[in-house]
Nucleic acid binder design. Structure first.
Length: 480
RNA sequence: GACCCCAUCGUCUAGCGGUUAGGACAUCACCCUUUCACGGUGGUAACACGAGUUCGAGUCUCGUUGGGGUCGCCA
């Protein structure tokens, strides 16, 4: 069976990780069955609309390669795909639902927005009992005709248990008495999510509804609407939350990273996508590295998990390192260039630098910390030359650097292999261990005990002139 | 508060009645090595608790505890 799924975000700002993961599962369900993945913009709350949010949604999906088959920008046979353009459709179905007995007109004033009072947490919400339910249809229509503002509110008269099946959570049973008669069509004529999602999913022939498990409790209400219209509900796939820690879910309000933030921090879109796929899903074997195409092949809803998963930036970082190392050297260099531009102005052998950095960094943001000494030689203590393992101290360093200062200008083909061979030879000729010459040289060139790359690699990146200058400066410091 | 959901190493997870409870990240040790990193080897580390069912329970049932969610003219 070819599945039709939809990603239906509301344009309220950035794209958060949990959202993207939901989109991914929707995409995978559709694609693994040879079906269609569509994009629908849920902008029925004009108060929350954020300028540019739709573009973020488009660009995020495109960046990770999740292309949609139908959507606001490309159209399709079930449009329009922006809810604000479907207002008339919802009104039509809302009135029809009233006639079918699944809803009623309501003239109650909107519930006032509760101030953030200190006892808000202690307040016990009670089920709303709508007095308008007793109004006759004629009476209600007369008031509407008279221009009175109204809403369409769901009518729930059923008794007993509502049951539905969820692909992840299994069979769920909720008492009809526990369901709220929520507003379906607002005073402004826009539908609420509770109504629009049912109408659209049916009209757009959606077969699988994938959404956060916070919707489990209200799913029976949606089923009642499907039922009233005589429609078949979709297959439900409720997915667990993506958490920041055991208590809090990942959210922008807590300052948690969005997809855009992660990319800006030097994470590769493919790595982010791979990581979040595994937050709540696993292939059943030990594989962890998946491209989107590979996920399409391996994905099945049966292997979706039902417990919440904590987003672990440390593991994402490791995975990003895997993706960075898997890049071709040319591609790595191309992607590193803008990061170099941010922190380096000196003339350096950047291609050599890329070769040094690629196996050592986990995110592109690591570049700055790994290269700061290249830009400007930092101040350092003479005691840095003291190293037991390398058998060096300031005296050995002075001797080694003096030899190096004489040797380095003679090296013409300035590359790592030549430098290393030359200095190794120099050490042997003078009865020194490799480390006794290379370790002091690194200090002289970097002012650091440890660096990405060895002494000769740093020299290769710095170039002959700067290398010789730094060695001379170090000698002066040692003898000073 | 009512209702719903969840519960294996610190984290992501495998496990679908019989396992020395496996893998990955992190962490520790060692090896490799011009330091670092990569890579390799090995170690520490988990079935929330209590009853039941069963010859046998991480796996099934019930309860307890803990956590999350819903109860908006937000989605």
């Amino acid at each position: 069976m070819k599945a039709r799924t939809r990603f239906a975000p509301s344009p309220t700002g950035y794209m958060h990780i949990g959202n993207l993961r939901t989109a991914l599962y929707e995409y995978l369900i559709a694609k693994s069955s040879g079906g269609a993945f569509l994009l629908r913009i849920e902008d029925t709350d004009q108060k929350r609309y954020v300028e540019g949010a739709t573009e973020i949604i488009y660009s995020t999906l495109k960046t990770v390669g999740m292309n949609w088959d139908e959507g606001p920008d490309i159209g399709g046979n079930y449009g329009p795909y922006i809810q604000s353009e479907r207002k008339a459709i919802y009104a039509e179905y809302a009135h029809k639902l009233v006639e079918l007995g699944g809803a009623h007109y309501c003239f109650c004033a909107a519930k006032e927005e509760t101030e953030e009072s200190e006892d808000e947490e202690n307040a016990i919400p009670s089920k709303f009992q709508d007095p308008c339910k007793r109004l006759s249809l004629e009476e209600a229509r007369a008031r509407i005709a008279a221009g009175e503002p109204y809403t369409v509110r769901q009518t729930i008269n059923k008794k007993g248990k509502s049951r539905f099946h969820d692909e992840v959570y299994g069979d769920i049973e909720i008492d009809y008495d526990d369901l709220d008669e929520g507003v379906l069509l607002k005073t402004d004529g826009f539908p609420t999510y509770n109504f629009a999602n049912v109408i659209d999913d049916h009209l757009m022939a959606i077969t699988h509804v994938v959404r956060g498990n916070e919707y489990i409790s209200s799913t029976p209400k949606y089923n009642l609407i499907y039922e009233a219209f005589g429609w078949t509900p979709p297959v439900y796939v409720h997915v667990p939350q993506v958490m920041k820690d055991a208590q809090h879910k990942l959210s922008k309000r807590n300052g948690d990273a969005s997809f855009q933030d992660l990319v800006a921090k030097g994470y590769l879109p493919a790595a982010i996508l791979n990581y979040i796929a595994l937050l709540g899903w696993n292939p059943g074997d030990d594989r962890e590295i998946f491209s989107l195409a590979e996920l399409e092949k391996a994905f099945t809803v049966e292997r979706l998990n039902k417990s919440p998963a904590i987003f672990d930036i440390v593991k994402l970082t490791w995975m990003n390192g895997c993706y960075i190392r898997a890049l071709t050297p040319e591609e790595f260099h191309r992607q590193a260039l803008p990061w170099y531009a941010k922190c380096l102005t000196r003339k350096l052998d950047l291609e050599m630098l890329s070769r040094v950095l690629q196996p050592r960094i986990e995110t592109f943001a690591d570049i700055a910390a790994q290269t700061d000494f290249l830009e400007k030689m930092p101040a350092y203590e003479l005691s840095l030359y003291e190293n037991k393992k390398m058998k060096t101290d300031p005296a050995v360093a002075a001797q080694a650097l003096k030899l190096a200062a004489a040797k380095l200008p003679e090296i013409d083909a300035w590359n790592n292999d030549n430098l290393f061979a030359g200095l190794k030879e120099l050490a042997a000729a003078n009865g020194l261990k490799n480390g006794q010459i290379l370790y002091p040289l690194r200090i002289a060139l970097s002012g650091k005990e440890t660096t990405a790359g060895g002494a000769t690699e740093i020299a290769a990146v710095l170039g002959k002139e700067e290398t010789v200058a730094r060695v001379k400066a170090a000698l002066a410091k040692l003898e000073g």
